[in-house]
């Protein structure tokens, strides 16, 4: 996986992944300036809380939900939506990136 990340570094603006039953958005890490990471793995399964302390631009654990991207030529916005047991949806802006 680190091989793929190394290859994607300098290529991708954002890597989207699941596997973790949470919502997480991370700014670029020291190993790869410029590449954000967004995790969306809570659309059918909910996991426990975090075990790490890596600073996140946004994180939601223990709640189902999904992400939504708004992409324009100049900016992209990552929205996070969590869904309560009664179906009430809470929207939060997780990250906003601008070109240049």
């Amino acid at each position: 996986m680190r091989d793929l990340y190394g290859a994607a570094c300098g290529v991708a603006d954002v890597i989207l992944s699941g596997h973790v039953h949470a919502l997480e958005v991370f700014a670029p890490q020291p190993g790869c300036a410029g590449m954000w990471t967004a995790v969306s793995g809570a659309a059918g399964e909910v996991g426990d809380g975090p075990v790490g302390v890596r600073p996140a631009a946004f994180a939601a654990y223990g709640q189902p939900g999904f992400l939504r991207l708004e992409i324009t030529p100049d900016a992209l916005t990552v929205w996070a939506y969590t869904v309560a047991e009664d179906g009430v949806v809470t929207a939060r802006e997780a990250a906003r990136l601008r070109r240049g």
């Binding site: 793929l4 992944s17 596997h19 075990v51 070109r99």
Partner: peptide, 29 residues
């Protein structure tokens, strides 16, 4: 497989879609 072509050349946004991440705060990644 980790590449964008036309969008990258045109200054568009390049997105990777993968199963798992190396950045995270839970045990798996």
């Amino acid at each position: 497989r980790a590449r964008c072509g036309a969008a990258g050349r045109a200054g568009g946004w390049c997105w990777g879609i993968t199963r798992c991440s190396v950045t995270g705060n839970t045990g798996m990644p």
